[in-house]
């Protein structure tokens, strides 16, 4: 059932969303063609070290990684983010500030450069499993989230970490509609956030992130469904209680707080036992914790994963 409060203005006065999106798309694509004067698009990242974290499967082609995206801030079609990406660069992507707050000794608003520079960038090739039963293999560039979080000295009350995506309907045309409850919120338990696998990514394929992939800074939690890996982060908050995340609010029966990849626990509307790796014809068996069980299963020992889905 749809129960909505009445908006202040009549439906007829509002430009149809599709029309508006098309108009934005036209402008955005036009701006991309003209190019000059627009802030620089993503460039190569320097001094990226290799890491031992790499899966043996071939990486998903860059064009697929950058053109098949779930990022409702740009629109609900998977082709929307790549098409609407130029709108993001309509304003300079930087300066970008991340505000760290909550249960910690050193809360601060930190510029993107100051957040990342103290750390060594490394490449990590992770599997990425979407909750919609498709997957990719992506060579991310980033820094371990735990090392970044330690600098803010979380106190003993900090049990969870909450992440917030930028709200800016000029950059994110999808935010003009109420598809989701903006801002996009995600959360991790503190031990999940501090786990060495958890990455704060700033690039992929050796280049800075493009808007459709969550520029300039995003989370990558490879053993959880993709929607946990929140994009374009502006807020990190240490909390005592778990965040009520965006997808939990949107469909509490379908999306839980943990969202660990689990072939044995179906989504209510489809099976999670198999997945289609982008670029492959036959479906693959989905692995427990997306193949990272050896590293992370211990975090959930004693928990009923069918209840804590």
């Amino acid at each position: 059932m749809l129960l909505k409060s009445k908006p202040d203005i009549g439906e007829s006065e509002v430009t149809d969303k599709r029309l508006w999106l098309d108009r934005r798309r036209f402008l955005a694509v036009g701006a991309a063609f003209i190019g000059s004067g627009a802030p620089a698009l993503a460039g190569p990242l320097a001094n990226v070290g290799k890491s031992g974290w790499r899966v043996d499967d071939p990486s998903t082609p860059l064009n697929d990684v950058t053109h098949y995206n779930n990022f409702y801030e740009f629109g609900t079609d998977k082709s929307d983010p790549a098409q609407m990406a130029p709108s993001f660069f309509g304003k300079a992507p930087k300066p970008w500030t991340v505000t760290v707050s909550g249960e910690c000794a050193k809360p601060a608003a930190v510029a993107y450069e100051d957040l990342i520079r103290p750390h060594r960038l490394e490449e990590r090739i992770y599997r990425m499993r979407c909750v919609e039963a498709w997957s990719m293999v992506i060579p991310w560039v980033g820094v371990p989230l735990g090392e970044v979080l330690k600098r803010f000295e979380p106190n003993s009350k900090a049990k969870y970490v909450e992440f917030t995506t930028l709200v800016d309907p000029e950059r994110f045309p999808g935010q003009r509609g109420g598809t989701l409850d903006w801002p996009y919120i995600e959360g991790l338990r503190l031990d999940e956030a501090m786990h060495p696998l958890t990455l704060l990514a700033v690039g992929l394929y050796g280049e800075e992130l493009l808007p459709q992939n969550g520029a300039p800074i995003r989370l990558v939690v490879p053993w959880k469904y993709g929607f946990k890996s929140i994009k374009s982060i502006v807020g990190i908050r240490f909390t005592q209680t778990p965040a009520r995340t965006t997808w939990m609010k949107a469909a509490p029966r379908e999306y839980g707080f943990f969202a660990n990849v689990n072939p044995k626990v179906d989504h209510p509307r489809w099976s999670q036992a198999k997945e289609r790796r982008i670029g492959e014809f036959l479906k693959r068996e989905t692995l427990a914790f997306n193949g990272y069980a050896d590293q992370v299963a211990a975090l959930y020992s004693g928990m009923d994963l069918a209840v804590n889905f």
């Binding site: 697929d64 098949y68 998977k78 498709w134 289609r276 982008i278 670029g279 014809f281």
Partner: peptide, 12 residues
């Protein structure tokens, strides 16, 4: 589909 114009997930 044959021309590879159905995107990254042509089956879907």
């Amino acid at each position: 589909g044959a021309a590879g114009m159905l995107g990254a997930n042509p089956i879907e």
